[in-house]
Every structure is written in structure tokens, then in C-alpha cells.
Design a protein around this nucleic acid. Structure first.
Lengths: 327, 327
DNA sequence: TTGTAAGCGTTATCAA
DNA sequence: TTGATAACGCTTACAA
């Protein structure tokens, strides 16, 4: 029913290995035969069967991208970057979520993967690396010599951001954090804490709220502060989604941003620009592009496992202004 | 190297067919053998090879989702809906872009697909349907008895929206359309036109601007109107991205929205809510969920090809207000 | 330059 | 209740 290599072979009156050789650009085929086979493949809409191909050869010129959080729209930008680099290098892109990832890593349908999924266990990645399957992880550092990390420098821009808020006179801080096990949240908070310490500004654990990077958890954080009437001068949020939630709660509570309370985010999502949120811009398209490049280089034997570190830059918006310098 | 069915068989001291039978829940296996094999699979981290499986059996409990526009963040919502329904029914989800879609449709790695990709040619879908490969298309109607469409009723909410703007006194309209070959754009414009006609409100083709659903094309549209100083009273946009672009251009040009010019969108993207854009809400998560349900039902033999039509609802925002009723 | 045949990891048929 | 064995669509020695 479906057209396979043998149907083409039969139509051309040649053997299946000749067809295979044509399809794989081998030089041991006569010109007439080559052209005939190519024409027939077009005419008969032949599409190579990836399963058969991978099963035998172990190669498929395909990379896998794994993610699982559907609330972060910048993921599409990362995917676009990966897609573009892969396409330019004649690789296909296959995307999956947590559950099916290991299946596709193991099946020779893909020749390497890029992981951006908190839920993906290190253990699985280590198993893959153990059998020489190339892995690139985003936003995570993995202590394995054959797993490549592509990470963003969260520390420096967060430090810069906080230093400036201090310079502008802010003293009472609240921090709305993301999942505490993620490297990026840890780094963002570490920078925050360090700058406050270097300026001798007190920060008590009560002003740390542990969220989950979703809008709602920012909303909840701010509500809690509103209820206790212990509003800080500024909410520093570990990402934009939560900053949005904070702003929504503040507005509902009758607080003006930034006149009464300032808010900062991290990520520079689309929305951030529109409402003028002070945040940190992460080059997502480039991140995807570089991750794909790193991966494909390693697939093709370059074996470079040095981490790639991307810079992020502060994007100053109007959710922050200058307070009177305290006496 | 990699653990396959034969390594398990060797470890258990049974034949590979017995292992296969255990893995597929066949009843013709002794209890002791079954438990032993299951334990070993866990211990040895056995993952079935999807390629081998699909190659032989033709089934993989996997559905394919195809998209290609990385600028539409609501795609993630659709994916989430698909992912959730698939997961609830023990199907895996594989995602791909235009180029590699046909490959995965043909390879028995997937048992059906959901298409949301303007660039995907009908021809390819028809070929797939011809060999009984189940297909669900979103936002497109395909004249084939074995292809299922899941579409949004764009007409009614657009008609309702325009009727209300007319009631509020708007008379000079501009329409910023999407790609003219897409069904959704056609439907949105048809409703717009019909309501104007029913109210005897003139609309000349010069007030139609043909965009591409991207923010930039809305921006360009509004710039053109600004340069010619022929501003309408209201820009009706075929989606939110373009409405955002229109608003950006208007603000740059010193026009207030909605005091000087009103703007409406379509899609109800995240941003729309924040800035109070009047738009039409499309239930994207539900759309994905229903598409997956339709597909899986057809994979499992229900053969229901009646189109699914989803309702969308107008979301009134503040980018529209009430004009003085003209004399 | 072309063809034969083995084998990739699995399922399925049939015999034991 | 189990096990040999052929087959799925392809690649790849190796033989012709």
C-alpha cells in the first residue's frame, strides 16, 4: 500500500540497494539509473521511512527538543532558534514532552537532544550520555563530562538591577522566587542577596515568597503582603509572569505601580515591554540557536562540552522610579 | 550496548517472544515469568524501541502535532490541550514542523496527526487520508470525507462585535486582514462586510489592508493610514498581534486610543487582556483537547468526520468606547 | 555499476 | 505456557 524502497526498485527495474544508494547520494550508481530512480521517487511521492532507516543505520539527522511548561511563551522563541539552526544544517527537529522523551532518545530516531524541562530527571540524561547520546541542557548545569550546558548568566544582570534600585533609594525589598530547586532561581536570588548585603540592607526571610514562575503565584504573593499590610517598597520577582501577578494584585488592592510600590521581573516577555516592566532580557532565539549548534557539533564529533554562557541585559521600564533618598 | 528485548530475555532466561508478550500484556505468560520479566525491565531500565515497534506493528499509541508559526503564543495552549487529552488516554505526543511532518505521518511512528500549519499543503494531507491515516485539521476545512476539521466559528462573534460598534456610532471603518488565503481571515472579513452592508455603511476596498497576522503588519497598516491622514474612526483587526501593531503606530503618531481612534482585535491573547483590547476570545486549550479527542476516536475506529465547530465569544475591552451618535 | 543477503528491535504466527 | 522464525523498511558489506 504505502510506497517503499522496493516499490521504487520494482518500478525502476533495479534492486533495492541501488535505490538506497541513490537516496543516500552514494557515488556507485550510474547516471541514468540515478536519474530514473530520482524521478520515480518524486512521481510516486516516496518518503523514506524513518523507523526503518534509524533501525538499521542508527542515524536520522534529527534532533529532539524536550519541554513541558506550556505557560512560558518564550519557549516558542527558543524552539524557533533551534528549528532555524537545525534547518540550515539539514537536520529535522522533533519535539516532545517529559513522558516520551526517553523513548525518542533511545530509539535511534533522534541523534541528540536539547532539554528544557525542569521535570526531566538528571538520571535519565546521565543514562543517555553514558551510551554516547549527545545531550544539551538549558538552564541547568550537570556534573557530567559529556553533557553540554547552555546557560544564561542570571547573576550579573540581577546584581546590576538591584544595585540600581538601591541607588534610587529603595530599601525595603520583597523577593518573589521561582521553584527553589532550579538553578536560575537560585542564581537570581543569590545576586539579589549579595547586593543587599554589600549595601548593608537588611532582608529577612519573611520577605521571601516561594512561587512557581506562574502568574498566579505572583498574585498570591502580593495578596499575602497586602493582607498583612506589610508592603515592601519594591517587589523583585524571579520572572515576569509572577511580576504580572504581583502587579495585578497590587492594582486590585488600590496600590499604584510604581508610585506606591515598584515591581521588577525577569525574562522580558512580550507583555513586559507593553506595560513597561523593568526586567532582564534573555536572548531566547539565540539561546535556541546556540543550543542547536552546540548539539549538532557534538553529534558530528566535535566533542566540545564546555558550557556556553549567554549574557542577559537589564531592560529598564517604568515600573520602577526614583524614590527620595532616605535620610 | 543498549538494552533491548533480547538482553532482557537473556537475563530472564526466556525467549524474546515471551518478553514481548509480557510487555504487551498478553495473557499467555505464566505469572512467575511475567513478574520476573517485569522486574528485570525496571532494573535494567528497558525502554522499548519505538522504531522497531512501529516498523513491525504499525501502531505506537502516538499522535503527531504539526505547526510552524512561532509568533503565536496561543499555540502553546493548544499544545497543552492536546498533550493533556493524549496523556489521559495513554497516547504520546510528538510535535513537528512543516518539513518533517510527512515523514512522521508515513513512518508508523505516529497513528494520526493534528495539523495547525498554514504552510502544510492539502495535497499531503489528502495523500495521508488516502491510506487511512487519520488527520484532524485546525482552522481549515478540507473537502475530504476522511479528514476531520475542528474549526472556530469566527463569523458570529465578529458580526456581534461589528454590530455593537455600529450601535455605538462608528461609521468609518478600516479592516486589517490576515493572509487572504486562510479560512479564518476570510470568515472574519465576511462577517465584517455583511454587517456593514446590512447597516448600509459604505466600505471601500481602500480601507482594507492585507497583513500577515504579525504585529509588524498591523503597525505598517496604521502607518499608511497615518501618512495619508485618512484615519478611520476604528481599526478592526483580524487578530490581536496586528491590533497591537496598530495601537503602537497610533500612539507613536500621537493618536489616543480609543478617544481618537478605536481598535479591535481577535484571539484574546495574553497581552489583550492586560491592555484592555476589545477582542474575541477563542478557547484554545479546549480546541487542542477536542482536536486530540476527535483524532484518537478516529484512530480507534469511531470514524466520525463531522466537523467540530467551537464558539468564540466577544471580550469587551476599553479600546472601544461610545461615539456620539451621528446626526 | 549492480545485486544478494544479513541484520537493526520489535511483533506475530505457529509449532512444541 | 513457551520458543523458533519470518517479517516490517531500510542500510551495508560483499559478491557478481
Amino acid at each position: 500500500m504505502a510506497i517503499g524502497i522496493r516499490e521504487i526498485a520494482a518500478a525502476a527495474g533495479v534492486s533495492i540497494s541501488t535505490v538506497s544508494n541513490v537516496l543516500n547520494g552514494k557515488s556507485n550508481v550510474g547516471n541514468n539509473t540515478r536519474e530514473l530512480v530520482q524521478r520515480l521517487c518524486k512521481e510516486m511521492n516516496y518518503i523514506p521511512n524513518a523507523a526503518g532507516k534509524g533501525l538499521k543505520s542508527g542515524r536520522n539527522r534529527t534532533i529532539l527538543f524536550n519541554f513541558s511548561d506550556f505557560d512560558r511563551s518564550f519557549y516558542l522563541k527558543i524552539i524557533e532558534g533551534i528549528h532555524d539552526y537545525a534547518g540550515e544544517n539539514n537536520y529535522d527537529l522533533m519535539i516532545c514532552t517529559t513522558k516520551s522523551c526517553e523513548k525518542y532518545m533511545r530509539s535511534s530516531l533522534t541523534n541528540g537532544c536539547i532539554i528544557l524541562d525542569e521535570r526531566m530527571k538528571n538520571e535519565i540524561l546521565l543514562r543517555a550520555a553514558a551510551v554516547q547520546y549527545p545531550v544539551v541542557v538549558l538552564d541547568r548545569r550537570l556534573p557530567h563530562p559529556c553533557i553540554k550546558s547552555v546557560v544564561v548568566n542570571n547573576y550579573d544582570p540581577m546584581a546590576e538591577l538591584i544595585r540600581e534600585t538601591v541607588r534610587r533609594g529603595y530599601r525595603k525589598f520583597a523577593f518573589v522566587g521561582g521553584p527553589s530547586h532550579t538553578d536560575d532561581n537560585r542564581e537570581r536570588f543569590a545576586a539579589f542577596q549579595a547586593v543587599l548585603q554589600e549595601g548593608d540592607i537588611p532582608f529577612s526571610r519573611e520577605h521571601y515568597f516561594s512561587g512557581d514562575y506562574r502568574e498566579k503565584s505572583g498574585y498570591q504573593a502580593a495578596r499575602i503582603f497586602l493582607y498583612t499590610r506589610q508592603l515592601p517598597e519594591i517587589f523583585v520577582c524571579a520572572n515576569d509572569n509572577m511580576a504580572m501577578g504581583v502587579i495585578r494584585a497590587l492594582k486590585e488592592g488600590g496600590c499604584r505601580v510604581p508610585e506606591d510600590v515598584a515591581v521588577t521581573g525577569f525574562d522580558n516577555c512580550e507583555l513586559a515591554e507593553t506595560i513597561g516592566l523593568t526586567t532582564v532580557h534573555i536572548p531566547n532565539y539565540e539561546r535556541g540557536y546556540l543550543a542547536a549548534r552546540s548539539l549538532i557539533e557534538n553529534i558530528e564529533g566535535r566533542n566540545n562540552f564546555a558550557p556556553v554562557i549567554l549574557n542577559a541585559t537589564v531592560s529598564w521600564g517604568k515600573t520602577l522610579h526614583t524614590k527620595a533618598i532616605p535620610v
